[in-house]
Design a protein around this nucleic acid. Structure first.
Ligand code: FES
Ligand code: FES
Lengths: 154, 154
DNA sequence: ACTATCTAAGACCGTTTCGGTCGGAATTCC
DNA sequence: GGAATTCCGACCGAAACGGTCTTAGATAGT
């Protein structure tokens, strides 16, 4: 129902990789990260370029070049990564950049869903990539963050 | 980033329509609902069929036939509708029905994202069809439900 | 029994998105 | 200068999405 693209998935993995070995004396090349997770190197390269263009990574060309985090791992949220890669898409198919929808007027569903969208955005924004990196023990981590600790005030 | 398909959107609209005029003396035909929102009748018909098969609607064939809610509008959540239409997709591209992912092992990103997925599911589950129907004044409704009232305990 | 109306079911198709590849140009270090 | 590596855009196949069409089957009214 709600799908995160594989590219965004790869992007998060790459960010986590960089966060784990920082401060890095030498930036990590796209190939290094791709090898570590067994994902297509060329695809990962393009994702990293996108991330760099979005200001989340700093790139360094040339021999021994590579990518490094632009900010501290604690200051980068999962939401930023996803938006940088997948674009500013929204939960409802109608809320596009052109604020008008072809169904506007005879559709009262839009407004409530937009609020859901915002809530999800808040949720994603609260997750920083430092949270991912500092969780080698997935079971224990799941217990600390998961567990339906979310509450909605109606 | 997180997209709700247009089909699910239509499905929610149809559910809302049915909730508004209940208890209905006569079930609403697919064409009635399609006309009300100016959406393709045949497409809406197929969506309603899916919803009926999922047990959210009851269908009645024949003259003056149509669809009606299977339960009270307050007992149907948006989550059920979305899952019925878009299928049991998950936020991460890897959490498929076959629990194993090709990247399993070298990917610590999975578990945290699964928790986010669950949180979104909870959020959607808390929204009932009745909430949509009883909100003719969208502005006022938005204030009562939206507004970042979501809180995450970390 | 007949017929009009409506759902049920599925094949089908055009367009877009997604995942992934390729090739070439520019940059930096040795 | 040469090797490594980022940068950029074009490209492609497969899948999903949105939508249409056709046929069959159920029901109510006459
Ligand atoms: S689908 Fe665009 S306003 Fe509801
Ligand atoms: S993408 Fe499948 S386990 Fe992370």
């Amino acid at each position: 129902m709600l799908r995160l693209t594989k590219k965004a998935d790869y992007g998060l993995m790459a960010l986590k990789y960089l966060a784990e070995q920082s401060p890095a004396p030498v930036p990590a090349s796209a190939k290094d990260i791709a090898d570590a997770y067994h994902i297509p190197p060329q695809l990962l390269a393009k994702i990293l370029q996108t991330l760099a263009k979005a200001g989340l990574l700093v790139s360094h060309a040339g021999t021994n070049g590579g990518y490094a985090l632009a900010r501290s791992a604690a200051e980068i949220s999962a939401f930023e990564v996803i938006r940088a890669i997948d674009g500013p898409l929204f939960i409802t198919s109608c809320i596009t950049i052109h604020g008008t929808c072809d169904l506007a007027g005879h559709c009262t569903i839009k407004e409530p869903l937009r609020k859901v969208n915002d809530s999800i955005k808040d949720l994603l924004s609260a997750i920083r990539i430092a949270d991912l990196a500092e969780a080698p023990d997935t079971e224990h981590y799941a217990a600390s963050v998961g567990g339906g600790l979310i509450s909605i005030a109606v």
